[in-house]
Design a binder for these strands. Structure first.
Lengths: 112, 112
DNA sequence: TCAATAATACAACAATTATTGAAATATGAA
DNA sequence: TTCATATTTCAATAATTGTTGTATTATTGA
């Protein structure tokens, strides 16, 4: 995970709509949802949802597969895990003791 | 950590400059740096840095204390940890097995 | 007190991102 | 083939965010 990718993912999460979409997809993992279902559940105009899904797909936060005329979106949980690892590494650098308690410090060291 | 706060923090991290500032402050934890040092190290006009520091302070990602005519900024590591916990919870919901390997799954369950 | 320094606030402008409706593309069903 | 449905693309516009120079506030040291 480099800085450029991290920034792109943070941009993806820095919108209430996109955060809602992601959480919805996590809730429906690993099945995912097709675009229309997301639009209905979140009460969004299809064009607007499409705009946000495109950004999230570009960031790698979600992946999409075609099912006939539907597009099924899934949360990309490994990317989220990589982001958490990146943040953990950022957070640990210099002063792990200020960020983690004892039992968590082990996994913290693992990421560096 | 509610959605609103998470979004605000993600906004804070969704800029190369602000991410640089945060990483720099983590590197200099727990001492922190005064604004002028940050501006010099990152080669930024003071007004621009001030703009970004204000956003980060508002998000709670950094804290600031006055030292005479200097303003010392420090990374707020507990907020970063809370963000990591939030993401972990988001990521785990519904399908921890797709996100974590066995030994990490323990701390995953802890956050729910 | 006065001059110099540190930092922020303000204002103007540039650049980016978000939203919406209409049109286009593509698939499935009649 | 023709119609209806699902989704995206495009274009116009709205809204937000970022950058810069100047002015202001506050503090230190002479």
């Amino acid at each position: 995970m480099d800085k450029q990718l991290a920034t792109t993912i943070f941009e993806s999460l820095a919108s209430g709509i996109r955060l809602d979409v992601f959480r919805l997809l996590v809730k429906h993992a690993p099945t995912g949802l097709v675009a229309g279902e997301i639009a209905t559940l979140l009460v969004l105009p299809p064009t607007n949802l499409s705009f946000h899904l495109k950004a999230m797909t570009h960031a790698g936060l979600v992946s999409v597969t075609q099912e006939g005329r539907y597009q099924r979106y899934r949360a990309n949980l490994t990317v989220m895990q990589a982001l958490i690892d990146y943040l953990t590494a950022e957070c640990c650098t210099g002063s792990p003791e200020h960020c983690f308690d004892a039992d968590k410090a082990t996994s913290c060291r693992d990421t560096n």
